[in-house]
Design a protein around this nucleic acid. Structure first.
Lengths: 210, 210
DNA sequence: AAAAGTGCAGACAGATCGGTCTTGATTAAT
DNA sequence: ATTAATCAAGACCGATCTGTCTGCACTTTT
């Protein structure tokens, strides 16, 4: 098969992708295979036969663990989100300095993520784009994931003692984050992280300076 | 069928969507139906049978006009892109004032687009998200579409006599545009256009003021 | 050691996929 | 008016889709 056995996103480079975590049980192998295939080739385009072939397991095993493909998709999104957030907030926790430094460091961490050769964009953005008007459950899952990030951003904004609406600051960062992800996905140019970071800088300047 | 006969994106509200244009020939009906279904339910998830049912035509008719579903997808993206750009640049052409005003008006026009009840995001972003690593042709089509916008932005930036790299200005706008589109698609909240506009304002200030 | 329980392999089923082909209707030309 | 030519309708095909079922192998318990 053309996908080979190579696994992008090795641990240590970018924590993203459940597919890169070690696994033993059949359930884990299924999750790994499904994550890789869903994220790289699309959710609808990936069949369960392809998944079990890559997971080196059987169809009954898959349906023993997941009631349906839809449930498997939900489980994959959940796992990808958790894994990524652990990595993301872990990297941010290493950043020292005031709130402004931490908020801008967001885009440095994104730059690491974008530089991963296996970068395929944000699974939640991709899932919403693929299902969109047909699936509100996917949009809800994406909203939860994004809420984790927005909450963190709002906490930083409060610590920064910004003038004006804290929620609007988080919304502004959401635009920069989503834009950087999509632009990078399209161009494969990770330097959009720096572009977004610069936009964030000039924006934060207007909130703190007076 | 649950989709009914309603067509979002009526002319005059938002020029986007080839699906909303009048048509007579079978080819046009196919294009309209395919545009609507691809954009609202996904490319892979939409079968040719569904398309011809909505277009009220036959399968042979579809394959007389398009060699394959892949070619139909390409034609739809091409048509959607052209229709949208005609509408978008047409709206921008109505804007009076200096380059800065025109550049910021971009986000007002996006706001109109976002407010369309049938807004489903950018077909190119959605297509790249769905196929991604499996289809460079789609990414190329998206790049051409985005290039039209970037070229326009660069021309405005030159007229604005910005300090620094004109291409970087266009890249920054690309981040804001993509981010606003995706954020709106996820939240269905068209006010992200204003958020992006404000970010553009403070960014342009740093380029012109001194 | 025997029996009950657990879990995976692969055949199978019904539906739907993209794509082909024959047939019929309509149009145009002589 | 008759023939030629074009195009579309829908039956049809093999492949593939999601999901089920049977059977075998291994583990655990008493």
């Amino acid at each position: 098969m053309e996908d080979g056995v190579q696994e992008f996103c090795p641990q240590g480079v970018s924590g993203w992708s459940f597919a890169a975590r070690p696994s033993k049980t059949a359930r884990d192998r299924i999750m790994r295979a499904a994550s890789y295939l869903f994220c790289n080739h699309g959710f609808a385009a990936t069949g369960v036969d392809t998944i079990i072939a890559r997971a080196e397991t059987a169809k009954a095993t898959l349906y023993n663990h997941f009631a349906s493909k839809e449930e498997l998709i939900a489980a994959v999104l959940q796992a990808e989100g958790e894994t990524w957030r652990e990595w993301f907030f872990g990297r941010l926790a290493e950043v020292e300095g005031p709130a402004r430094t931490r908020m801008l460091a967001v885009f440095d961490v994104f730059g690491e993520w974008f530089s991963d050769p296996g970068f395929y964009g944000c699974p939640f953005i991709n899932a919403v784009a693929e299902f969109d008007n047909g699936n509100d459950a996917v949009r809800a899952a994406a909203a939860i994931h994004k809420d984790h990030i927005l909450t963190w951003l709002k906490a930083q904004a409060i610590e920064l003692r910004v003038t004006g609406d804290v929620a609007e600051v988080a919304r502004s960062f959401a635009v920069l984050i989503d834009g950087a992800i999509v632009a990078t996905q399209h161009t494969r140019d990770p330097s959009f992280a720096r572009t977004a970071r610069h936009l964030a800088e000039v924006y934060l300047d207007t909130l703190t300076k007076r």
